[in-house]
Write a protein that binds this DNA or RNA. Structure first.
Lengths: 339, 339
DNA sequence: CTGAAAGCGCTAACAA
DNA sequence: TTGTTAGCGCTTTCAG
């Protein structure tokens, strides 16, 4: 804050000029080793901290990246932020966070605010977002952006995600292999890319196994605990011979709601109904029986996002190539789907 | 980023000067309404965004606050960050986050980096931190700091926390009221203020009830799942008549480890051993029986932290008064401790 | 109520 | 290899 000492002070003390001191800090090749060492050691001695605002005003760079997510407190996003921070911090960057609260308007607003403050952005879309103009404008202005997990569909943008389709496919295939015949699906909001993909993976697995897709076994129910509870009620109200013998949920939260309701109604998991969720949340191992789930590889995803963003930022605009990294999710089989 | 339009451009177009435009944006009292409105409407029309770096260079303020926590991904901290962001965002601030990884060195390092970038700081201490000089220096430089949850002990600093002592006391009292006689405690790292307080609350409740404190029922075991598992093993290895009939854990994670081990060994919860945790994590309601726990009031805490910080930042240094807000935690009683 | 002018601390073209 | 100089865009005293 009130850091008084400047490169001028250092320069004076070394009987040189501000430019030389400035260049010394940048390890400029045309400054002598000797000079650099004198500058560095004096700086350390005096506890000098370069004024970032001044540097940012000159260069447009402030060593900060921004992360925009729907909600920071959701474990998936907080783990991603953690992972991103770990990587970019190593490279001398700080992380600015903002929340869209799943709202397109809010997303535009925080994007605007971030534009002034960051050198690059990592973004996971709001559920609400259907229009990408705000991002187009940002990209046009030269802002490096990497989308992750929830990415704009049909767009040529930098992105890191898992193969949600394959994750869902594997989960459903696993249940089929275990002998399940009637597999229900708790689908998430179809406006969000990842949930759409998961539903498609579910459908494909059934198709390949020659199991007819039944509309009434696909519950468009959202991804909350309550959504899962409601779905369970509907399932329990079905005639016994129409009841599913397995459920693949697009989120662990809704899986949990279902799970609890089924147990409360003395349905045995996995014997009567097998359950597989998506997200591999911590609590999956706490419940009884432990919940099978698809791991989203949060840590790796964060690392890839950070690496891609750093790479983009350090490349001249002309050399930047749009990249799309797709990680393979991993099905974690636990008791809830073992037959 | 490449935002070309400046207040000079606006000034020219309105045949006035930069000073007037600048003042108009600050809603300066000595600028005419008419002028202000002309400036504001033109600014909106042109999509003008003031250059924050320039303003920060001049004023030293950049409309950013920093949050330093041990780990972002832990649900307690991520919920707090979420809550803080919600409040300060309303006031036009962004949030910079950094992690100490429980290390004193790292904490000092990120503090340094933040000093250059933020107008105020919210901090929860690393487990490792025993020396507060780095904070003293920051405060001397005029940086407003609010500590939360894990605060420096015996220091006159701004802080927001819950009454961990009372939370623990209430939890243990509740078990005593339910008829428990031998109550064990999974204690957390005693170097961290909150865990120390929780242990003291535990001790006090026993004392008041005339129950002797037995050293071997206090497990100094850490706050991870594994720690809880280990503690369970030790408990199970006790002769039957020395086994506790209740356990108060200083964290939900270690409670969970204990919980699972006890169940695996056919100990009935709460009949054989009642369990109460601390933290009121989401998963407490997912497990069977549901886990009683002490709620830390994350949302309120975040709100208070943000409000206190905003208040401090907007007060001239001379008028700032050190405050300490203590929230009352709430015991949430669930099946795991009902007898 | 508005304008002129200086300067926040750093960087980088240009010059030596 | 180093120095000179101008200026990034904004704020703010001082002067009308």
């Amino acid at each position: 804050m009130n850091n008084n000492i400047t490169i001028y002070d250092l320069a004076k003390e070394l009987s040189t000029t501000a430019s030389t001191v400035s260049r010394a800090f940048q390890d400029h090749p045309r400054i002598s080793r000797k000079m650099k060492e004198k500058v560095w050691s004096l700086a350390k001695e005096r506890g000098f901290q370069p004024n970032l605002a001044a540097s940012q005003l000159r260069t447009g760079k402030g060593r900060v990246i921004g992360v925009i997510v729907p909600r920071i407190g959701r474990s998936f996003f907080s783990l991603l932020i953690e992972s991103i921070e770990n990587v970019v911090n190593e490279a001398g960057y700080s992380v600015l966070v903002a929340q869209s609260h799943e709202l397109w308007e809010k997303e535009k607003q925080v994007l605007q605010a971030m534009m002034q403050k960051v050198d690059g952005l990592a973004i996971s879309l709001a559920a609400d977002t259907i229009d990408y103009q705000h991002f187009d404008q940002a990209i046009e202005k030269g802002m490096p952006i990497v989308f992750f997990d929830r990415i704009p569909l049909f767009r040529h943008v930098n992105s890191v995600r898992i193969d949600d389709y394959a994750g869902a496919y594997d989960a459903v295939k696993h249940m089929i292999d275990r002998g399940c015949k009637r597999i229900a699906h708790l689908a998430g909001p179809q406006g969000i890319s990842v949930y759409q993909q998961r539903q498609m993976g579910y459908v494909q697995a059934l198709k390949e196994a020659g199991i007819p897709i039944s509309e009434q076994l696909v519950y468009q129910c959202g991804i909350t605990l309550e959504a899962g509870t409601k779905a369970a009620e509907q399932i329990l109200s079905l005639p016994l011979d129409e009841r599913p013998d397995a459920v693949f949920s697009s989120s662990d939260n809704s899986a949990m709601g279902l799970f609890k309701s089924l147990k409360n109604n003395n349905i045995k998991i996995p014997e009567d109904i097998a359950v597989v969720g998506f997200g591999n949340e911590l609590f999956d191992e706490f419940v009884d029986p432990m919940l099978s789930s698809v791991d989203q590889r949060n840590v790796e995803m964060g690392i890839e996002v950070a690496k891609m963003l750093l790479e983009q930022m350090n490349l001249p605009i002309a050399d930047r190539k749009v990249k799309d990294i797709v990680l393979k999710p991993q099905l974690i089989i636990r008791k809830s789907s073992e037959k």
